[in-house]
């Protein structure tokens, strides 16, 4: 009998009704619809609310998180960061759009920092941030972001299969 398969979770964050902010959610929907991840991979659409994220991370060995963000790069740029639990604050590895705190709600950045301080991060967490361009309510993702969605979907499919 071989070693047990690691528990893997892919989390898409975003608002599907707000243009490029749908990126994270659309990635996980593409992964789920075509069965592109290994069997047993948990695929989640999430609002980014921190207590929920921390609860998901507590029960997985490896997680991928995809969210749209605004940072100093052209729309559609993909920023990838790998956070290894116990190796310090994750904030430095993130683009500003994910790192920054909102005055209206707790978000992904808060979850990462709290998770790091409380040792609640998964052993390995891969963050994909897709540079958003158009956040118009009701709009479809812009062309560069739509291309980035396909790229990130393919990369996560490959990474989850390699680790399974």
């Amino acid at each position: 009998m071989g070693p047990p398969c690691p528990r893997q979770t892919v989390i898409g964050i975003g608002n599907p009704y707000r243009g490029d902010d749908a990126a994270g959610v659309l990635v996980v929907r593409q992964l789920a619809a075509a069965g592109r991840c290994p069997p047993g991979t948990e695929i989640v659409e999430h609002t980014g609310e921190p207590t929920g994220l921390l609860a998901i991370w507590a029960h997985t060995d490896a997680a991928w998180l995809i969210d749209a963000a605004v940072f100093d790069a052209p729309p559609g740029t993909v920023h990838r960061a790998v956070i290894t639990a116990g190796l310090g604050s994750p904030a430095k590895l993130l683009p500003p759009g994910l790192r920054g705190m909102s005055t209206h709600a707790l978000g992904v950045g808060d979850a990462l920092e709290l998770g790091s301080v409380l040792a609640l991060l998964p052993p390995r967490l891969v963050i994909y941030a897709i540079r958003a361009g158009d956040l118009t309510a009701g709009a479809a993702p812009s062309p560069p972001v739509a291309a980035a969605i396909h790229e990130v979907t393919a990369r996560i499919e490959s990474e989850t299969r390699r680790r399974a």
Partner: peptide, 24 residues
């Protein structure tokens, strides 16, 4: 900040987050 609180009292904050999650 809450982060500083989490560093000083991690168990308290962890339980507080569990409490919040129950409501959510």
């Amino acid at each position: 900040s809450a982060l500083e609180l989490a560093r000083a009292h991690p168990r308290r904050v962890e339980r507080g987050l569990a409490l919040k999650k129950a409501g959510n």
